[in-house]
Design a binder for these strands. Structure first.
Length: 483
RNA sequence: GCCGGUGUAGUUCAAUGGUAGAACGGAGGACUCAUAAGCCUCAAAAAAAGGUUCGAUCCCUUUCACCGGCACCA
C-alpha cells in the first residue's frame, strides 16, 4: 500500500434479504483491522460499509410482510449497522442504496458518463417461468422445464434491455490486472479472473424492465421503462458515498487522488474485478487499486446451513465471548485468503488458549507483580520488533492478518517464558533491584504488545495501556476462562 | 466435462532434493507471580502406485480424495 495517500476501504454491501451471518462479521472485522492499522500509520482513512437494497425479491418479502419496501430495507439495514458497531468497527459512513439520494444521483451520473456506444439498447430473448416470475438460464432448466414448476411451459419472452459492451474492455482489463495497477489478492483469485477474461467476455445486460423488477430500483436515465440491473447500481455505491454525484472534495481526495481497497467475498470477486473497473474505465473514472478477496467460513467441514444445524450466528460469538474475542477468533483463526473451519468447540479452545491462558493471564500476572511491588513504567520505549523472517508492516501491507496475530502471540509466549526464567516474583525478596529492572523490561514489552494489538483488539489494547499507566491490576479477568 | 489448486502429527498450518518444524489438543514432571493459568519433557505425520536421481515429502506421470473457477441469482 502507498505510504501517504488517503485510503478508501470498503466492505461489500450485503444483500438485506437475510440477517447478518458470520461471513459478514469476518469481512467487517478484516476491513476494520486494515482501516485501523492505516489510521495508526497516520493516514487519512475512509471506511465505508452499507447495504444492497435494490433487488426485486425484497419487494416480495416486504409485500408479504405488509411493510412498505423502503421501510423494509431500512429496518433490515439496522441489523448490519448494529453488527458493525457491536464488533467495534469504526466505519466512517454507511450507504443504503435503496433510499439515498446520493446513491440514485451517483448511479445515474455513472450511467450517463459511460462512453457513447458502450451502452446500447438490444432485444433480449429468454425463457420465462410464469411460476417463478423470472427468466431461467440454461443451467436452471431440466428437461425443458423449470424444476420448481414441472408441467408448466416456459415462455419465450422478448424484452428490450440496455447492454454494456464489456467486450470493448477485454484488452484494457487484462492490462490493468496484469500490470497490477489493479491488484487482486490473493494470487489464485487474480489468476481466476485473468483466465476468465482471457476466455472472452460477453456483453452484460445492465437493465431490467420496470415490471420485472416490480418498479423497485434505480431508474435508467431518460427511459421510464427500465431500471438498472442491481449490480450496476450496487457497485457504484463506493463512489456515490464519497459524493461522486456532485464531484465533491471527498470524492477527489479519497477516490481520484487516493488509494482504494475493496474487501469482498470470493463469490463476488468477478463483479468487482471485471464489471466494476470496466464501468469506471468507460466513464473515465479512476479504477480501484486493490481487491482483497476473502474466503468463507465452514463449520465441521460443511457449509453452514440451518438444515445441518451447524450455523454459528455472529451474536453467538459476541454474546458468549465478547466482541474483542470475536475479533480475535476471526483475525487469528480464520484465514484471510482461504476457507476456514470454525466449530463451537474449536472456538472455545481458541479462546481459552489464546485469550484466557495467553493474553489475559499474562496481563494478570504482570500487573499483580507491578502493583504489589509498586513498580510503575515511567517511560515507554517503542520497540521495533521483528522476527527473523518477519516484518510487521510488510505483513500488514500484504493483508497477512493471521501471520501478524501469530507473531504477536509469540511475543506473549516469550514474555511468559521470560518471567519463568527470571523469576522476579522470587527475586523481589532477595535482589529487589534486579527484580525491579526485570519488571520494567516486562512492562515495557507488555506495553509494546498492546501497541501491536491496537488494530486487532482495540479496546483490550487500550485497557492494557491504561492498566500499565495507572499501575492497576485488572479488577476482573480480561478474558475469564470458559469450561 | 474443461481449467486451476490442494493432499504433511488428532486438528490447523510451516519448511526443505540429503536427520520433517510449530501451535492447539493429549500424557507426564518440577514450580507458584498469575484466570488449576505459565514453564519443562514426552508421544504423535508426508493419500496410493510408478518414474527421474547416489538420494524425493519436495521434481515428473498416473490413480484417488477434497476445494475453487467456468458470467448477468443476489
Amino acid at each position: 500500500m502507498s505510504p501517504k495517500k488517503p485510503l478508501f476501504i470498503s466492505t461489500a454491501i450485503p444483500y438485506v434479504n437475510a440477517k447478518p451471518h458470520l461471513g459478514h462479521a469476518l469481512e467487517f472485522v478484516e476491513t476494520d483491522i486494515i482501516a485501523r492499522y492505516n489510521r495508526l500509520l497516520g493516514k487519512e482513512v475512509f471506511f465505508l460499509s452499507g447495504t444492497d437494497d435494490n433487488a426485486s425479491k425484497n419487494v416480495e418479502i416486504a409485500e408479504a410482510a405488509g411493510v412498505p419496501i423502503k421501510e423494509f430495507v431500512s429496518t433490515q439495514a439496522e441489523n448490519f449497522k448494529k453488527l458493525l458497531q457491536d464488533l467495534g468497527c469504526e466505519n466512517n459512513d454507511f450507504i443504503q442504496t435503496g433510499i439515498e439520494e446520493r446513491h440514485i444521483k451517483g448511479a445515474q451520473k455513472l450511467w450517463n458518463l459511460c462512453k457513447k456506444g458502450d451502452i446500447e439498447l438490444r432485444k433480449y430473448k429468454g425463457l420465462y417461468c410464469v411460476g417463478c416470475e423470472e427468466f431461467k438460464t440454461d443451467k436452471d432448466i431440466v428437461n425443458n422445464e423449470c424444476p420448481l414448476h414441472p408441467g408448466r411451459i416456459l415462455q419465450e419472452i422478448e424484452e428490450e434491455n440496455y447492454f454494456f459492451k464489456l467486450k470493448n474492455y477485454e484488452k484494457e482489463l487484462l492490462d490493468l490486472i496484469e500490470s497490477n495497477k489493479l491488484k487482486i489478492v490473493p494470487e489464485t483469485r487474480r489468476n481466476e479472473i485473468l483466465s476468465f477474461i482471457k476466455g472472452g467476455l460477453n456483453d452484460l445486460s445492465i437493465s431490467r424492465s420496470k415490471e420485472r423488477v416490480k418498479n423497485w430500483g434505480i431508474p435508467v436515465p431518460n427511459d421510464d421503462t427500465q431500471m438498472m440491473y442491481v449490480w450496476f447500481d450496487a457497485l457504484s455505491n463506493y463512489i456515490n458515498a464519497l459524493g461522486f454525484a456532485e464531484n465533491s472534495e471527498k470524492f477527489q481526495k479519497f477516490w481520484e487522488n487516493g488509494e482504494s481497497i475493496h474487501v469482498v467475498g470470493k463469490d463476488i470477486s468477478r463483479f468487482h474485478a471485471v464489471y466494476w473497473p470496466a464501468m469506471l474505465m468507460s466513464a473515465g473514472i479512476k479504477t480501484p487499486d486493490i481487491i482483497l478477496v476473502h474466503g468463507f467460513i465452514t463449520s465441521g467441514g460443511q457449509k453452514m446451513s440451518k438444515s445441518i444445524g451447524n450455523v454459528i450466528d455472529p451474536y453467538d460469538l459476541i454474546n458468549e465471548y465478547g466482541a474483542e474475542a470475536a475479533r480475535y477468533i476471526l483475525a487469528r483463526h480464520v484465514s484471510v485468503f482461504e476457507d476456514s473451519d470454525l466449530t463451537k468447540e474449536s472456538i472455545k479452545e481458541y479462546y481459552n488458549a489464546g485469550l484466557a491462558n495467553g493474553l489475559g493471564n499474562l496481563v494478570s500476572r504482570i500487573m499483580k507483580m507491578a502493583t504489589v511491588f509498586g513498580i510503575k513504567l515511567d517511560k515507554y520505549t517503542k520497540l521495533n520488533v521483528a522476527g527473523p523472517d518477519f516484518s510487521f508492516d510488510e505483513s500488514m501491507n500484504s493483508f497477512e492478518i493471521n501471520s501478524v496475530m501469530n507473531f504477536i502471540w509469540t511475543r506473549i509466549a516469550y514474555l511468559d517464558g521470560y518471567i519463568q526464567v527470571e523469576e522476579p516474583f522470587k527475586k523481589i525478596k532477595i535482589k529487589p533491584e534486579e527484580a525491579k529492572n526485570n519488571l520494567i523490561f516486562i512492562l515495557n514489552e507488555l506495553r509494546d504488545i498492546a501497541e501491536n494489538l491496537l488494530p486487532f483488539l482495540p479496546n483490550t489494547a487500550k485497557n492494557i495501556i491504561y492498566l500499565i499507566e495507572s499501575n492497576k491490576s485488572p479488577e476482573t479477568p480480561l478474558f475469564p476462562r470458559k469450561d
